[in-house]
Simulated scan of single mutants.
Amino acid sequence: MTLALEPVADPAAPLARRNPVAKLGAALLFSLPLIATLDPLTPALGLAVELALLPFFGVRYRVLARRAWPLTLAAGGILVTMVLFAADRTGALLMSLGPFAITTGVVSGALGLVLRVFAVALPGIIVFATTDPTDLADALVQNSKAPARFAIGALAAFRLIPLLTEEWQMLTLARRARGIDAGRNPVAGLRLFASTTFALLVGALRRGGRLATAMDARGFDSRVPRTYARRQRFGAADTALLVGAALLSGAALTISILTGFFNPILG
């Protein structure tokens, strides 16, 4: 059974209608300066800008928050790891947890890393939530002159991702029907998870090989000039999106430098 999920974004939103290559380029331009510094202020400013622009991309806060739990879980793990095992423990002592000294330097570094995870990941989430995969592949070939073999192959792989979820459910139900269930045993659960993952990987490799052979048989690598059913236009509004992303990321970095928070990752 497949559940009907609420759409993440409204495709009619102003920025959601922009060219896929422009949205992808804007995400890269905005994200790259955020990883140039270790301070928490720069990613915090970047995250604030991203959250403020979400409505213009048609992304719903409630749906995004509900579906971003893997990212939140990863950020929580990073925070705990940094607080407990950070090598640099300079700054004023805030509290002690046995042998672990929690200082202002540790908290600042952990907070900066967690904010950077969200600030760098969110633009990519916005791009893929507001872009049809076929439009993205067409735009990469038409506007970025990417090789058609690469773009169409990536599109085919992206289209297969939902099938992995369905196949995982089928494998789990099939094993449960055969009496293979871990119950409440965590060790047995880990072994069952590993074996199911391996079976899913084998199935994905087989399907990928069959798909690649079928695509080559249909002339996807014929090197003959192709025609496109969907023309992807790159206009002035798309250029403005790229320029705006560069200016906003530069502004966040400038504020960090002027306020003395800037802590370059190199140097």
Rank of each mutant, 00 (worst) to 15 (best):
P33S: 09
R89F: 00
M95Y: 08
G153K: 06
L190C: 08
A204S: 15
L53H: 07
L113M: 10
G183Q: 05
A101N: 14
G112W: 01
G58P: 01
F100T: 10
A52L: 14
S31F: 00
L253M: 13
E50N: 09
L53D: 04
V243F: 01
L84P: 02
G46C: 04
T239Y: 01
W168N: 08
V8C: 05
P225S: 13
L24S: 15
Q142R: 03
R226Q: 13
L53N: 07
F198K: 12
L97G: 06
G219W: 00
I255M: 07
L71Q: 12
L94I: 15
F118C: 04
P33F: 02
D135Q: 12
L38I: 00
T172P: 01
F128A: 12
T196A: 07
A252C: 15
R89K: 08
G183C: 05
V80C: 09
D135G: 04
F198M: 14
G112L: 00
A52S: 08
G124I: 01
A121R: 10
N185Y: 10
G124R: 13
A121I: 02
L122K: 13
A246T: 12
L266Q: 13
A156C: 00
I102T: 13
G244F: 01
L258P: 04
T37Y: 03
I152Y: 11
A156R: 05
R66K: 12
G77C: 11
R60W: 03
F234D: 11
I180L: 14
G109Q: 10
L73T: 15
P40L: 01
V80G: 10
A236C: 03
T165D: 02
G260T: 07
L28T: 08
A68W: 05
F57W: 15
G203Y: 02
L51M: 12
S195K: 07
L34S: 09
T2I: 09
T81Q: 07
P147K: 10
T103K: 03
M95C: 08
G235A: 05
G112F: 00
L32C: 05
I265W: 14
L94N: 13
L140W: 08
D132N: 13
L192D: 15
V202Q: 15
L113F: 06
